[in-house]
Computed example of a mutant assay.
Amino acid sequence: MRATPILAAAFAALLLSACQTSTVSAPPAPRPEQAAPGVTPSTFRMPSGTGCSGEVERFQAVMDNDLATGHTTKSVHDRVSGEISRARSTCSAGNDAGAISQIRATKTRFGYPG
């Protein structure tokens, strides 16, 4: 039995359509200075320093990073930053132990490790 030209054309069209693929573009890669949501950027560096000033600046850096990555809300960040500011003042006044105690109390109150 011989195939008709119409049947052959339909078969060829079917074969060719199986070879067609749709083009799907990948989402754009994040810019180098942007980390994925919820991820600390590779450029983050924990502040150094000793005594109460080091403790104050490190905890503020953690809070700022938590806000930037979506791990805390703006209202919590503002409340904690206010408490950190009070500890910074205590530290500047020369009360190292008092400032460190304030930072530890704030960390405990908001669920951060000591």
Rank of each mutant, 00 (worst) to 15 (best):
M1H: 13
M1P: 08
R2M: 15
L7D: 15
A9F: 11
A9R: 14
A10Y: 09
A10S: 13
A12G: 05
A13N: 06
L14N: 14
L15N: 01
L16A: 04
A18Y: 11
T21Y: 05
T21D: 03
S22C: 11
S22Y: 09
V24D: 10
S25Q: 12
P27R: 11
P27E: 14
P27V: 08
P28V: 14
P30D: 14
P30S: 14
A35R: 07
T40I: 02
P41K: 04
P41H: 02
S42P: 10
R45M: 14
M46H: 07
M46A: 07
P47S: 15
S48D: 15
G49A: 13
G49R: 11
G49D: 12
T50Y: 08
T50K: 06
G51F: 09
S53R: 09
G54E: 07
G54A: 11
V56Y: 04
V56E: 05
E57G: 15
R58M: 09
Q60P: 05
Q60M: 08
Q60H: 07
A61I: 04
M63G: 01
D64H: 04
D66F: 03
L67E: 00
T69F: 00
T72I: 07
K74W: 01
V76Y: 01
H77C: 02
D78Y: 05
D78Q: 05
R79W: 09
R79F: 10
R79Q: 10
S81F: 05
G82W: 05
G82Y: 08
S85F: 04
S85W: 04
S85K: 03
R86W: 02
R86L: 09
A87L: 10
A87M: 05
R88N: 08
T90N: 10
S92G: 14
S92Y: 08
A93G: 11
A93I: 05
G94F: 09
N95H: 15
D96P: 05
D96W: 06
I100W: 00
S101I: 12
Q102N: 10
I103T: 06
I103Y: 00
R104P: 02
A105C: 12
T106W: 00
T106S: 05
K107W: 06
K107V: 04
K107M: 11
K107R: 13
R109C: 03
F110R: 00
G111Q: 08
G111H: 07
Y112F: 08
Y112D: 00
P113N: 04
